[in-house]
Structure formats: structure tokens, C-alpha cells
Design a protein around this nucleic acid. Sequence first.
DNA 1: ACAGTTAATGAAAAAATATGTCAATAAAAA
DNA 2: TTTTTATTGACATATTTTTTCATTAACTGT
Lengths: 139, 139
Amino acid sequence: MSTEELKALFNQSGQRFTAQREAVWQLFVEHPRGLTIAQATTVLAERKISQTTIYRTVKNLQDMGYLRWVHNPEGEHRYLATRPGHTHMLVCRQCDRAVECSDCDLSVLEQLIARKTDFTVEGHYLEFYGLCPNCRKTL
Amino acid sequence: MSTEELKALFNQSGQRFTAQREAVWQLFVEHPRGLTIAQATTVLAERKISQTTIYRTVKNLQDMGYLRWVHNPEGEHRYLATRPGHTHMLVCRQCDRAVECSDCDLSVLEQLIARKTDFTVEGHYLEFYGLCPNCRKTL
DNA sequence: ACAGTTAATGAAAAAATATGTCAATAAAAA
DNA sequence: TTTTTATTGACATATTTTTTCATTAACTGT
């Protein structure tokens, strides 16, 4: 999703793609691991963007389908920019470094689950965690 | 998980399986779709159980692995009674009904990713979403 | 470029959600 | 029973999220 495309989409529905909205979107694009509202607020405070705007923009983007809300088992709420193509994150529990891994074929698993439960499985959210090479060395 | 088993588990760790705790547990067992804290509070207020106790008991049960936290796209937080251990949720995006699926073998995938990235992969968080049989019919 | 129109922003207040404190209570142990 | 210890509930406090409304900024038509 390029900035231009996003702008066009906003404009289509009579909404404006303001500097603030662009900044919020950019921030999430730059952080593939996602951010909590609190984190986004801290970063964007430097650019004088208010917390209220961040809440509103995140909800906007979420409704449009460009941000996805995920929670981890610890109860942290974060938002991730949905990416074209299906990728997953592999996150270091020590330093939070994240890499994307695009090869995931869960279709067999989804089929199995669909058969067992009679649900229509539309998708999944998958995140791996572990230790990155650096942290493994220094621990 | 029977009430007796749960009581035993509480007692094992020097905790008491009080009437309040039993009531909270029972409530979640009776509601397979899960409940928010607010919903649980409303119901259990009739039995003079305080909100504080509900928060605490939910956290307790969650730490023990018998309640699991799920989120729907609207941002509602609800808790579901589940069995402990490594299971995953399959959540209906329409009605929020959730079922557990325990068969997930991602070990091959984890090995592949470990080799590619040099991370030590310790685990994963996986959640499926889709449509439950009922909602598929009525849509 | 300019004025008119409409949407978006930010600050503050309000509401909703969650956690901490502590005296009173209830359960288990001695 | 008495003592000990865990748990509860009321309240206070903290955190998170939403609403309100005057101000500001972005589009529209001229």
C-alpha cells in the first residue's frame, strides 16, 4: 500500500489524507512488529501529533483494513500494518528485533481444522518468538 | 475440568477455592462464547461478588491456564474457559464463538525458519479466524 | 488567489477499564 | 476454640479510551 494509493482511498470517501494521518500510517509501516498506542503516541509527540488524533487515525485505518489489531498473551494491544502478501513476524524476546518470514503454509492445517470444526477458516494470525543470533550469544 | 479437580489444583498451591471463585469459574463454563469482565460483573453482582474479586479471579484462572483471553476485531476483550496447555483458538468473526483446536504441528515450519534466520525459535502464537457453521448459514 | 464550506485537529473533560490499599471476613490449621 | 493466613469488598487511585467543542487546516467553486 503506497502513500499515494492510501491518499486516493481516503479521498474517495470524502476524507482527507492529512499530514497527521500520513505520519501515523508511516510509523506503522516502519515498524513491522507493530506498536501500541502508547508507543505511537510517544514517538509522534515529537511531531506534535496529539494522542486523540492517533486514536482516531488508528481506528480509521483499522476500519479501512490497513491496520490489524493483535494482542499477545501478556495482554499487550498492538497494531500492525497489514502487508500485501501473507507474512509473519519472528520476534526476539530479548531485544525485540523482528524479521519477517513469508513462507508459511498453514493451508493443510486450516483444512484439517475446517473439517473438524465445520468452521469456514478465513485466515490466521501467527507470530513466532525466540532468540535472535546476537542475543543467544550474549546470554 | 471439573469443579473438584479445580478445587484440588487451587489447594495444591495453598490457595482456597472459595464460593466466589467457584461462581466465577462456573459462569465462564456456562458461557462457551466467553464473557467480558463487564458482563461477568453484571451477572455476578446478583450474587454480591465484587468487581475486584472478578478481576482477580479471572487473572488467577488465566495464569493457571484455564481461562484464555481472546479479542474480536471490534476490540472487545473476553475470556473463555479452555483447557491448559498449548491450544489455539478458532474464533468466529461474526458471533465470536470460539473453539479450541489442539492439533497444531508447526515444528517443521519452526525448524525451517530457524535454519533460514538463525533465530532460536522457542514458540509461536497462532489464532485462526473465520465463520462458524451457524453464521455461515444465516449470512 | 480568494472566500466559503467542510473535515480534522488538539486540549481538556468525561467515561470506561483496570489495579492497589487495607480493614473486615472467612477458611484452614493448631 | 483460638490462631494463623488467605481472600474479600469498598474505596481510592491509576490507566486507557472516548467525547466535546473551539480552532485550524484542507478542499471547492469562483
